[in-house]
């Protein structure tokens, strides 16, 4: 996940930014909420469910490293990793 922090309404939680995950499923295109929140016509952006391990999200502080966390993330917040980074 990208670590950018643009101003305005975004639906990408801070606690997941910069973390590595895998795509659980593709949900299809949706109007970008970063535009629709301001009454603008949202461009269609692909939305994905992304799966993270608790170890990846919380590091040493994870309650149980193998438990999972999944969230919906728009494509413009994602960037590809090489396989060695996948959890």
């Amino acid at each position: 996940m990208r670590t950018m922090a643009p101003p305005g309404h975004v639906r990408t939680p801070f606690y997941l930014r910069g973390k590595h995950g895998v795509i659980e499923r593709a949900l299809g295109p949706f109007p970008n909420p970063e535009q629709t929140a301001y009454g603008l016509p949202g461009e269609a952006r692909d939305l994905y469910r992304v799966r993270f391990t608790m170890a990846e999200v919380w590091g040493e502080a994870a309650e149980n490293p193998d438990d999972l966390l999944e969230a919906e993330i728009f494509a413009h917040w994602l960037e590809p990793l090489d396989d060695s980074h996948a959890p």
Partner: peptide, 30 residues
């Protein structure tokens, strides 16, 4: 999202350690 097992225990739900907990954060459209 950080300590689901502790939170579930407070609700009276204690799961076996080998059960994986999957927390779903409804961040967007679904």
């Amino acid at each position: 999202v950080k300590e689901p097992r502790k939170v579930l225990a407070e609700f009276g739900v204690t799961l076996p350690e080998d059960t994986t907990i999957r927390v779903h954060d409804s961040t967007s459209e679904m």
